[in-house]
């Protein structure tokens, strides 16, 4: 049994890419997702993933119309994602989480509407590319996707190693951090913009559905039960990887989308974490 699984992995480049991609997405979840949960901005992850969709649609339209052939869908996705993040960061600059939630909600609706609006004008042959941004599949990745994920994961790890304390301080006490002379505003924007770029690039590779399943639920679950910042980051990595591996494994057994299964597993992990926290009391 075990031997036959290894045989399958060794002989299937598709499965190899899926496994490597899962590893990188788990790193992205641990480094980006954890800090979004600390900042009280898990909702931004879903919003930015949809903004990326609208940006990709705009990019495809500009290419298809011959208006700006150089404007690639990935560029559009990153620009829209960053715009949405900056808008939200601006609303939240005074450290009031409530206002950020409203800003994300409005921008979410706006970008989804723009995406649908633009899709109407796209040649039908390009529509599947848009759906790819939404429902991308771990089993349909090419080598470029892997490079994209690797680059994103490594950059995020580096930034978190450099600025972990600053990101945590901004999350706990933005006003106090500013008053003590730290440029909290700069770190606040850095943290949110970096997360937005990571979300847009990850959505390009594995689809927006997997992004908000894996970048939100494992971090939230981990933050419910673990009691140190590093613990939450590592816990998030483990849960995210586990959810994706379960998704891949069961997609063979029941012929389902691995992203969908991974999302369901991740959501159940969050429910389980809430129960664990309740039982502890």
């Amino acid at each position: 049994m075990i031997a036959s699984i290894f045989d399958l992995i060794l002989t299937s480049p598709i499965l190899q890419r899926a496994l490597v991609a899962s590893l990188f997405v788990a790193f992205i979840a641990a480094t980006s997702g954890s800090f979004m949960v600390f900042r009280g901005l898990s909702f931004l992850t879903a919003g930015v993933a949809h903004a990326a969709l609208a940006g990709a649609a705009l990019g495809l339209l500009l290419q298809a119309s011959g208006f700006a052939p150089w404007f690639s869908p990935v560029l559009g996705a990153v620009i829209f994602a960053v715009l949405m993040a900056v808008l939200t960061a601006y609303a939240g600059e005074r450290g009031i989480a409530q206002k950020m939630e409203v800003a994300v909600g409005v921008a979410f609706a706006l970008s989804m509407s723009i995406a649908v609006f633009l899709m109407y004008y796209l040649p039908p042959a390009m529509i599947p590319q848009i759906w790819g941004y939404l429902f991308g599949d771990l089993l349909l990745l090419d080598n470029l996707d892997i490079v994209l994920l690797a680059g994103t994961a490594l950059s995020l790890i580096l930034i978190v190693i450099l600025f972990k304390k600053e990101f945590v301080y901004v999350s706990i006490d933005m006003e106090g951090s500013t008053a003590h002379g730290m440029s909290a505003r700069g770190y606040h924007y850095l943290m949110i913009i970096v997360a937005a770029i990571a979300i847009a690039l990850t959505a390009k590779a594995v689809g927006a559905v997997l992004v908000y399943a894996i970048l939100v639920a494992p971090a939230a679950a981990s933050n419910e039960v673990l009691k140190t910042v590093n613990g939450v980051i590592i816990g998030c990595f483990v849960l995210a990887l586990l959810a994706m591996l379960i998704g891949l494994a069961s997609s063979f057994a029941i012929l389902a989308s691995p992203s969908a299964i991974a999302g369901i597993v991740a959501a159940l992990m969050y429910v389980a974490a809430i129960q664990v926290k309740r039982l502890r009391r």
Binding site: F38, G40, S171, I172, G176, T228
Partner: peptide
């Protein structure tokens, strides 16, 4: 009320 409590700090 400006201090957030959802970061697991010691």
């Amino acid at each position: 009320d400006h201090i957030q409590h959802n970061v697991p700090m010691k």
